[in-house]
Write a protein that binds this DNA or RNA. Structure first.
Lengths: 209, 209
DNA sequence: TAGATTGTTAATCGATTAACAATC
DNA sequence: TAGATTGTTAATCGATTAACAATC
């Protein structure tokens, strides 16, 4: 994936959606599909699908279309879903616990190995394979365990501080669920899930129907 | 907001972010700000900010900039945040419960008044003001109570069925947290939060750093 | 008034769609 | 081979940035 650098983010963000629809086609035992058919299912133009896929390689065959399983697996590999990842969750409140419990992430290879919270009442609580550990021990944990992704699920006020702790002790990838933007060193990747922005967008749309 | 129809979605989706940053400025007692300053804080160009805001009205004053509180309140109104909304959550699993517990939504005026689940063990459970009700009673509940938004937090398999139940009984606005796209009548608005797509995008980015 | 900054038009850039030669 | 559909180039569309007259 050396050439991945000049691929647009809009195109990258569509990849998981392709992956999801291809999975569904596999479940329905569909073995081949054309860009036209896939487009009509997903609501894209055939042209866009071919452009998107050709950012990552030539997966199709002229006159035939795309082999569903082959394309699915190729996209999975491009997304890095052929590997396993160790994940920690910082903030063991309702949302943190829900994420730890959410089976789909584990099935996709993202394993939560620990949670962190500063609330003494929480410490020791176990959710699936992950135990809640005192936030003070975050750094020592990171030194002793390989961690691929840190999920920030604290309140907005604590977000920047825990982010600094985590990145300072080696975390390079963050999935941010707090209602704020966090500042990170430039070699750290952040993906934001700003639920409140999604809700407010919905609110706008329902008021301007 | 009669003219809201031809405003681009990318611009609409930035509104909640403006609102968030303006709130922060208010908290820091900043009373005025120029598009240039706001841009440097938010990582936008001044030009884009002025273009975005002028989609919705002329909120600024030449030679001065924007009054923070005025602009904040105006955007809040545009987003519909000056009203209260009654919300139900369908699916009272971990995620549904976490959303019901999530204080920020309530503070912004989105009140969860009931949850629905088909698991008998869940029924009667109370989270804040919302009780878990048998899914079979969804339609009768909707007939007897005004509901603005239904959050779908079931598993992907149940998503389409509960969506049909909800829209069939009058729901016009859906916030979809399931790992699938749902089909709705064309007068129904859906906002998707596809967590797995966000995670897979992050996975791609960390593998193509 | 002079300086600052908006609102808005024009220019540029990027993303999507259309077209078509290549080829299975 | 003929038909179908890709990969890719060209054309269009939309979003962002730049520029500047209007004006507080």
């Amino acid at each position: 994936m050396e050439k991945a650098n000049n691929i647009s983010m809009v195109s990258i963000r569509r990849l998981p959606k392709y992956y999801r629809y291809l999975e569904e086609l596999m479940d329905r035992d569909v073995s081949k599909i054309s860009s036209k058919e896939l487009g009509s299912i997903m609501g894209f133009t055939a042209s866009q699908i071919r452009q998107d896929l050709n950012n990552f390689g030539g997966f199709g065959q002229q006159g035939y279309g795309y082999n569903v399983k082959e394309l699915h697996d190729a996209i999975g590999k491009i997304l890095g879903l052929d590997k396993e990842y160790k994940v920690i969750i910082i903030g063991a409140g309702n949302l943190g616990q829900a994420l730890a419990n959410y089976n789909n992430f584990g099935k996709a290879g993202f394993k939560c190995i620990a949670m962190f919270d500063k609330n003494p009442k929480m410490i020791g609580l176990k959710i699936r394979d992950a135990e809640v550990i005192d936030s003070d021990r975050l750094c020592s944990f990171l030194r002793e365990n390989h961690v691929d992704i840190a999920i920030i699920a604290t309140n907005a006020e604590a977000a920047q501080e825990v982010t600094q702790n985590a990145t300072g002790c080696g975390v390079k990838t963050i999935w941010n669920f707090t209602n704020t933007d966090i500042e990170v060193p430039e070699d750290v990747i952040v993906e934001n899930v700003h639920l409140i922005e999604s809700l407010f967008t919905l609110s706008f749309l329902m008021n301007n129907r």
